[in-house]
Design a protein around this nucleic acid. Sequence first.
DNA 1: TGGGCATTGGTTTTT
DNA 2: CCAATGCCCA
Length: 731
Amino acid sequence: MTSLLSNLNPQQLEAITLPHQSVLVLAGAGSGKTRVLTTRIAYLIQSGQANPHGILAVTFTNKAAKEMLTRITAMLPVNPRGMWVGTFHGLCHRMLRTHYQDAGLPQAFQILDSADQLALIKRILKDLSADEKKFPPRQVQWFINNAKEAGLRAAYVTVEDAYSRRMLEFYQTYEQQCQKEGAVDFAELLLRSYELLSRNEVLCQHYRERFQHILVDEFQDTNPLQYKWLKLLAGTGTKNAAAVFAVGDDDQSIYAFRGAYSGNMRDFEHDFGITRVIKLEQNYRSHGHILDAANALIENNSERLGKNLWTAEGKGELLRVYNAPNDFDEAAFIVGEVKALHAEGVALSEIALLYRSNAQSRVLEHSLFNAAIPYRVYGGMRFFDRQEIKHALAYLRLIANPGDDSALLRVINFPARGIGARGLEQLQDDAKTLGGSLWAAAVQKCGGEDSLLQKSPESLKGIAGFVHLILTMRQYCHALPLPHIVEYMLTHSALLAHYGKEREGAERLENLNELINAATSFVHEAENDSLAEFLAHASLEAGEHQAGSGQDALQLMTVHAAKGLEFHSVFLSGLEEGLFPHENSLSEINGIAEERRLMYVAMTRARRRLYISFAQSRMLHGQTRYHIASRFLDEIPQNCLKWLQSTPRMNQSTYASNSGNQAAGFAKTAYGQPKSSGGEWRIGQNVSHAKFGDGVIINYEGSGSDARVQVNFDHAGAKWLLLEYTKLTAL
DNA sequence: TGGGCATTGGTTTTT
DNA sequence: CCAATGCCCA
């Protein structure tokens, strides 16, 4: 116990050792939030106030859940088995699987991810012959999810105008279709689970008695439905209500656009009768100037719960601000500074390059690539989102639940087996008349399962061939271990053969084989290794963005993606009005405040050094746009800032400090010794580049620091290179 | 049935 | 500008 509670500050200690009561912990950035959360759990168990069975801890991401579990396991000698630790969706899913009958779901119900949901909506819109111009599928999706997140079934949505009436019609049809197919989308997991608990007194009571301790991470990100779910589960107001340990930071609420409602923190205080709010304000991450700047910035927001970060460490370096003439130059500046930092011994993985929107990464990547600096971009396609994986999963879904129309439509003719649009239309009509699934219609069309299975597969074409395929798969896979099912499916569906002969199919083949590995490790790790459970896992846990390449690399990501992370040095780029704050936020209610919190999150990622840069002009949507510096820069006290200036010369530019008082160890940095000494590049000259190899100069433009040459490389093709930062050798 | 070409739109994102 | 979708043709 002593070791568990050592090295905690008074507020952390108070939070961790609080008696059985609900509490709101306002945990600032870098204040040891996760430590408090996990230590609280360990403390409850070790002090005998709770056993693992009685604890439920909920987070937003699988990553956070995993992290929490790992840390608890490290702290406790006991196996945390019995504890419920997971995401809202994961826990709700668990509940629905256990009580699928009470929840009105088929045992083999499937989870739709956003892409699956969108596909289903598109199908419905087509079915109802809706004008996709007037009712964009994405908007319909938004409407449905919004309603669900407000806890509203179609029957309870009130509409006035014709437009919403049509939307509601889509929602209704969507609900019916989901029920028919046994499909459950993300919001549905929560809503169903909520309805299950609110309708089933006995069940609700059971869980209430069991989970006497509920811990919530990132509480400011909860949406109204999640909050209602928590309230219901905790049994607020009842005699043996659970103690809810809610940890959050209203200043880091940056997901309002997807339904998060940080007002839940205030409601929580009220609804749960919170008498004391514990504030964790001591920051263990950043140096003083960074915190001073962030505090000053966020002061500009009203309606805060109120919090001021401080550190026991020194002030540290000033924030470095760079005013670039254009986005190119901004990128070049960053590249130069990254090089210098790296040369000073800072690992590239300890340096982050943050931006407001993904589009900004292009220029940065370009410069980094030319400078041969390894980097890694976060975000983008995840494993289970890939087309080939989706196809494979569709086959698996059909094995688990042939009533899954969405899955059937996805693969009935993939790989192509000669089923055209007319055949499909016919099938859909049949299904409609039968009132059953597409699968049922297909089976009937082929004269029933039994007669079909007796025929030789070679003789069957088109729909019959497909039905036979799925039937044999089901039969064959019945008792097979999961990885074998996957392997069998990949071969017999001919997915492997298909991608094997596709030109760019190598990577897809690799991914499909990776799916077998995923199944193998799932079998090893999961308690329940059924096919249905694996499919749920695939939907709920889309997999890490990319396998870490292992190499030390610079970290590129949006500010949103950086939440929760920290780095030695952070570059915050594109601090321009219109970009950050984003122009769209100007017309949104409390839009600027949210952008400001985003800025706050970005700044507090840095431990030691923070760069902020903006460009006077930048290429956006194919046009040069001119912006002024972001208002957020004005909100940072000048005495926290050091303005770096570019002083372009003939052939080189130097970024020098005007404060004359540089932080220890970092000398003025001069950029790229341009050109070969004395030599001018000329068109037709043969040159060599470290990365692209040999080539010949075919064009030239710009001058001074803007000078670029176009080189036609023997292998890499034609590329524009900024002379100032590219090392070319004359041949 | 897929590939090529035109059109269109373009914050942030986890589950 | 560039990617993603949609549509048409071979």
